[in-house]
Design a protein around this nucleic acid. Structure first.
Lengths: 151, 151
DNA sequence: TGCAAATCCTACCACCGAGGTAGGATTAAG
DNA sequence: CTTAATCCTACCTCGGTGGTAGGATTTGCA
């Protein structure tokens, strides 16, 4: 499993907040209730999002969270990268360049590097807005990174 | 991490065997020595490959393993799927159709399903032969599942 | 002024899979 | 009948996942 509940719930929270856009600050209790998730666990996850600059927060009564930018300005890759730490499919691939000592002669490395690239390309092309409007063409359609998407 | 050492080593073993094609049965000790991996651990991994019909084995002296088919007849997806059990990037995606009870109303499901598809498409298009000959174009080139690859 | 509602912060914990190791039983060549 | 190989079962350690607990702090409002 590449993406744990942490990343999945983080995305769920972001999508929920994107849906409430314009309603001011939304409390975590509301989000947890709507999404039927543990508020305590969500607390630790939303803290990462907040510290990572993804959100604006307001403490005290009537406080809560809201998106720092517009939904179309978030891509899924950055949300998952922040919460998961890495999206690399294998631990011999690091985000800041490869560091395995056998890298120079490893015949399987290009495969893993290519897989990493494919995943990154896919996730960085999809925004929160795409998820809200249900842009199934982009998500489920025949994905093609470089050619014009006419299907 | 989507692919553990089990899957990675399995692929390493398959590539090693593909390189020794035509040399008859190759002992696990030889493979472990060449790849500098624990023979004992490799034993449990190669057992999965063998039971899954990926290999032919011969017990006793001068025994060992060899590929059951030609290198170009294995795609990477089936090797990893056999050893890892699943390649799904999240645990709400199962190989035999989705089973999460919220699936019908889940707005993030198409994203995960699409990611799963992109990964599967990439890995099932690459063969053992591609790895041996170092087909970097296919592995690292701008991947495009549906259009002709002219880059 | 004080209560209530909210974020923020630090600990803690159980469980399970990853990544092996150990030791022997079985098979087959010579 | 020895040796070299696969095959099989059991076991172990460690760290990450997926939370929970309890309180400190901040702010709005009556």
């Amino acid at each position: 499993m590449m993406v744990s509940t942490k990343g999945r719930y983080a995305l769920t929270v972001m999508v929920d907040l994107a849906r409430q856009e314009g309603d001011g600050f939304v409390s975590l209790a509301d989000i947890a209730d709507r999404e039927n998730l543990s508020m305590k666990y969500l607390e630790s996850i939303i803290s990462i999002l907040n510290k990572g600059g993804m959100l604006q927060s307001l403490r005290g009564k009537n406080g809560g969270y809201k998106l720092a930018r517009k939904p179309e300005e978030y891509n899924i890759s950055e949300i998952l990268l922040l919460t998961e730490g890495t999206l690399a499919p294998v631990n011999c691939i690091m985000q800041d360049g490869v560091q395995c000592e056998k890298a120079a002669t490893c015949s399987t490395l290009p495969l893993w590097a290519g897989l990493d690239k494919v995943i990154e390309n896919y996730l960085s092309d999809i925004t929160l807005e795409d998820i809200i409007i249900g842009n199934r063409k982009k998500m489920l359609g025949d994905y093609c990174g470089t050619c014009g998407s006419e299907n």
